[in-house]
Design a binder for these strands. Structure first.
Lengths: 208, 208
DNA sequence: TAGATTGTTAATCGATTAACAATC
DNA sequence: TAGATTGTTAATCGATTAACAATC
């Protein structure tokens, strides 16, 4: 396991690098440098080279980085070569928005496989292409499919229960849209998508 | 300007503290401690005390923090006492999802004031309660209203142009849902909401 | 008073930057 | 060769943690 000991600070930047490289590749660009990447991402060239050097040597002195190659390497490091299956918990407004209106998952290696809700009025109904399944079926579904990633889109008051059930069933990573911090065992990954948190990180700097 | 020099690392945690305090307050709890907060948020008590000490003394030895009071103080520090007006650029699927299906802005101090798109087929149509306005009107709208916050929900290819127009018009903070890093002057705040970035930060740890 | 928890200092730890030899 | 850029080392910088006097 060559890569699992990289500091999270570094890991957290790799998807940003990958996204930038994909954008450049789409425009037909073939080569880039730590300087160019740094300029586009607002980071120092040194930091980008240092980050990449944790995982190997991907560049060529005097030339820079072959975009296609670095892209492939980052995908490999991030386990982003295949397609990850995910389940979505919560078929309310937020869940509906994620399923119906967010189109970016598929082309970047993620797929929603099933949607769950605990509301009897919703179970059995359709959410886009999905039939909404009973939340009670989550454990057996996760065990059967081996799915490791879940998206939580339930109200804050329910999020913690849902998370515990998911983890109990074998889920290892949670993308949490509920506006609450989840307490989970250290080996479980959680990331947060509450836009208000991000807005407040900016209003601090805005004056009143 | 007593607070504007706090390190971003600290500032970035304040909204998390505020969210946790609000949750506790809703449950009727009146007092908390750095220990309890730390446990709930996965942070060390020392860090929480250190963070808060950058802005003042909000606790009482032997007792802890009065939740209502600390909440008020954090709101003041974060400029989260009033209601911020925002504009949304992009009335596609993503913009629609944000306006119609995300309900959490209002009660937490943010409000969408207007929606813009550049597509002639969309301009003049309704998005929920909003009439979609022509993107060309953004500059005059921003100047007239003094709005400082914009949400970008256009395709990646358009995001940079949109951002430049917004900044030119006087916008100071951007919540960017487009999957691309924006290059902006250092005094402009940007935060990113691309879920795939967050998913890839987790898949690194999941093995293949 | 005894117990608890703050705010703060000093020590530790980790991340970023600057600089440069290696080399394409 | 001359110019450019990498990968890496050492120095700097900043953030976290541990510990404790102050005090409620």
């Amino acid at each position: 396991m060559d890569t699992k000991d990289a500091p999270y600070t570094i890991v957290s930047r790799l998807p940003i690098y990958l996204r930038a490289l994909t954008f450049m590749a789409q425009k037909g660009q073939e080569i880039t440098s730590s300087q160019e990447l740094g300029r586009k991402l607002g980071l120092s060239p040194a930091q980008i080279r240092k980050d990449l050097s944790h995982f190997g040597e991907f560049g060529k002195q005097g030339t820079g980085y072959e975009i296609e190659h670095l892209q492939q390497q980052l995908k490999r490091i991030l386990n982003a070569t295949g397609k990850w299956q995910m389940i979505l918990i919560g078929a309310g407004d937020l869940g509906r928005a994620i399923v119906l209106h967010y189109g970016g998952f598929e082309e970047r290696g993620f797929n929603i496989a099933a949607v769950f809700d605990r509301d009897p009025h919703k179970i059995g109904q359709k959410l886009g292409q999905f039939e909404i399944l009973d939340s009670q079926l989550i454990p057996q579904y996760v065990r059967k499919t081996g799915i490791k990633i879940a998206i939580i889109a339930v109200p804050a008051s329910e999020a913690h229960n849902v998370a515990e059930n998911l983890i109990e069933a074998g889920v290892k990573a949670i993308l949490n849209y509920a506006p609450i911090t989840l307490s989970v065992p250290p080996e479980i990954q959680v990331q947060y998508m509450d836009p208000v948190i991000y807005l407040q990180r900016m209003t601090y700097y805005l004056g009143t």
